[in-house]
Design a protein around this nucleic acid. Sequence first.
DNA 1: CGTGGAGTTGAATACGATCAACACCGGTGG
DNA 2: CCACCGGTGTTGATCGTATTCAACTCCACG
Lengths: 208, 208
Amino acid sequence: MKGAAKRLLSIFVDMFEVFKLYLNSKLRLSEKQFEELVPFISSKTLARGEILLRAGEVCRHTTFVQQGCLRSFVTDLKGKEHTINFAPENWWLADQNSLRYKVPAMFSIEAVEESDVLLLPADIIDILERIAPGAMQMFGVLNQNNMIAMQKRLINHLSATADERYLDFIETYPSLALRVPQKMIASFIGVAPESLSRIRGQIGVRRG
Amino acid sequence: MKGAAKRLLSIFVDMFEVFKLYLNSKLRLSEKQFEELVPFISSKTLARGEILLRAGEVCRHTTFVQQGCLRSFVTDLKGKEHTINFAPENWWLADQNSLRYKVPAMFSIEAVEESDVLLLPADIIDILERIAPGAMQMFGVLNQNNMIAMQKRLINHLSATADERYLDFIETYPSLALRVPQKMIASFIGVAPESLSRIRGQIGVRRG
DNA sequence: CGTGGAGTTGAATACGATCAACACCGGTGG
DNA sequence: CCACCGGTGTTGATCGTATTCAACTCCACG
């Protein structure tokens, strides 16, 4: 590779620094291996409130959050939003069902804060596995952890009251509790915003 | 292999017929490949109500249900049971968290009906992948589908009322609705048994 | 038979949702 | 710089849904 091209590439690589660090911590990727991956990555900056995926569209990428925070949510028949998941730094987010089967997405994805994300193609797992064996297993572990987390959340929902769910939330995601608007937390734990406000009042949470 | 031993083996293999059919539909396993797998499998028959795994114990196997139906459930502080999942024929069931990390299981597993199950070691994925490449991907897909299902359930829980959840249940698992006791369905969709009874009354579900 | 669990039904209760009014803050434009 | 605005969160009153407690029936199973 010529010098100029290499410099240009290194600029791009720097844009992916968070992702690079992340991958290294999981896969021990060499510089060269990472460079192989670069052509498949595109990056994007999202303003607060910007929509990345709208329910009904087909999800075309897996998103990796380098900075900021996204959330996925559904809008029900009465127009109410329900937050499925938050994705802060170093998280993946996609409507996997839509991504895999090319069906309309069930949920939307928006930026909670100004965010810096990477967009990766649907078959990133296979691509990465080819470049660095072990990737598939990595995603397997991620998926499984994800599932365990969701299972816990479901159990929580079946057995705990609203205030217990809130306490569990701030315990499980202490940093998120400070970053994301309260009404989104409410829609995540499944209570009305007013109810969450009351709960916080009872518990005696001091404000930001 | 001598004739007697071969006959003996074939008896065992027959015990695994459901599993064999299942694997063939997913992986196109040859007879020989399947025989390699046999030494790792043990089978068990469970009576109705029999506990296969008790919360707090470490989960040692992945279970494959050949016949009957299992369920996983948690018991909360007030002694109430909450059904996490049902596993009828051709389903896998395990506390994956406990299985993977050797930590105490969060939930219990019991037989809803008399059931015929196979017990497979925790590293069955790797074993199977070695015998028949593609196994890891197969489990990946399973896990993902599982996750999608759980996500739908969570969404349902956040946005639907009790009767809507029940209707969704009998629509999604029509056969289960007839097989499993009503109170377990109640504990699955997250309502009190009495409430489910009332809901059924309102809707006008005929019995049996 | 008789016993216990499952399901049904009724009445009282509690929890969270809803509707409504208002305070607070950050940003925008005059 | 201030006035205005929309969005967010708080507080109050009322309402509705599902839970709880309790009594009773029915059936499977000993």
